[in-house]
Design a protein around this nucleic acid. Structure first.
Lengths: 253, 253
DNA sequence: ATCCTTCGTTGACCTGGATCAAGGCGGGAA
DNA sequence: TTCCCGCCTTGATCCAGGTCAACGAAGGAT
């Protein structure tokens, strides 16, 4: 996972991966959700699917990105590495989310596939031109960016003011809501939550250490806020208990 | 400061405050910076200046906002109050910054004037219509939102992974850069930095307590990274020393 | 089957920053 | 001038979460 020959080269590119946009399962969440058929056709012409294995880098920090794209499957992380090795995950990307920084060729953050992932990628200059010429695209990007900004600020509250326990609960709530959204289902008590990431990724997302994450999970299991099946699977017996323990959750993600 | 009769009512509204946009000192930083003369004239027709005293609330959390606007003078904070009183400042607004959440009438954060402040306010529905009909406005808002998102993520790194000392230095660097930008000057060693806010606001911005802020300032003074004139004024003897002590600063704000 | 190697858990201990508490200082009111 | 009162600083103590360390469980490779 650490020693891949070509960090920015996906493990597979399907150059002719022209699945029909109209059939795209995640389009309603994506930057192209407001597009008309002809606009979709144009995008379709410049799109390429890229697949990544879990742990594989997608874009490096400070690297010149040649593309950007929509997450189609899987989860990716966006993070910053400090000179001394400390790491902060500043965002998780779920299907529908846009990966990459429009209008800026070098991203100040690195993107890594957290699970096996698939990206609907666009050549950067072409996509940026499309953005400028297609109001429905630009408008949707603005909507998405405003929402992401709200989420980022929400997360700042968590990072700055919440206890380790509250952070864990907020994270579970976030992960559960994002999973539910894709399945178009509402939260229910007793639901299963699949954790898409390692303890280390969670720790780096929450501003904690893996040990603290592990301990808090054990503590939450003991008080019954969660029921642990195995390291990656848990049940949420009571959604409202979870939100209470999350300390002022704003239902945003 | 805590017991104001009408939280959302500014201390003064100049209804005929129609200073010419073309002469506006901060327009180049504002959402209207890409506008043509005719577009400026339209905005001018729907704008109103609002003044706030230091400490005065501008928009409450969860409150239905009737306006949003560009900061013209002064500094405002954007923050979230947790049910138990903990507070996190998620952003500072300097002249040129847009105050308020476009396309969403209720802001999930509260805005407070940190110093005496002046706002170029627009009626929300009218401004949103203008946004939708004016590509130069919408495009500029997108640019600004993308930049703010980068800054927010930068701040997440600080909140999640930096030490109290690094946080203080990053804050000084941020405040200095924002001040310099307005004056169109470059950072120089020995420059004076005016702190626009109280220890409490800094603490809430950095995810610290006032005591820690105070102690770190003393510590930084002792090691010579800053020179304290009084509680609100300090010198930055060496810009590079400051950035070193800030631990991986990305020059962003 | 056996060995790694990675990941997660748990325990023991430490420490950075929070908390609690006491003054200092400066500006406005009387 | 004196007295507040809101800020800021500093000291003493505490504790949530970090650090260090050991170990178990679950794959993969051979």
């Amino acid at each position: 996972m650490k020693e891949l020959a070509h960090p920015a080269a996906p493990s597979a590119i399907d150059l002719r991966g022209r699945a029909h946009c109209v059939d795209c399962a995640i389009r309603q969440h994506a930057v192209c959700s407001h597009c008309e058929v002809d606009e979709l056709e144009f995008l379709s012409a410049i799109k390429t699917y890229r697949s990544y294995r879990a742990g594989e880098p997608i874009l490096g920090m400070g690297e010149r990105a040649t593309f950007l794209g929509t997450m189609v499957e899987g989860v990716a992380s966006m993070s910053r590495l400090l000179p001394d090795g400390r790491r902060q995950v500043v965002g998780l990307l779920f299907p529908g989310d846009l990966l990459g920084r429009p209008f800026s060729p070098v991203s100040p953050f690195e993107y890594v596939a957290v699970t096996e992932a698939r990206l609907c990628a666009f050549d950067r200059p072409q996509f940026e031109t499309a953005l400028r010429e297609t109001p429905s695209l630009e408008r949707r990007l603005l909507e998405m960016t405003l929402d992401e900004l709200d989420s980022a600020r929400e997360w700042m509250v968590l990072l700055g003011r919440k206890s380790a326990q509250e952070k864990m609960c907020s994270f579970f709530a976030l992960a559960a809501r994002r999973a539910l959204r894709l399945e178009k289902r509402d939260p229910i008590d007793g639901m299963l939550l699949v954790l898409p990431m390692s303890r280390e990724d969670m720790a780096d997302f929450l501003g904690l250490t893996i040990e603290t994450v592990s301990r808090q999970i054990s503590a939450l299991k003991k008080v019954g806020v969660i029921e642990l099946i195995d390291a990656r699977h848990l049940l949420i017996p009571s959604w409202s208990d979870l939100l209470d323990a999350a300390g002022g959750d704003s239902e945003l993600d």
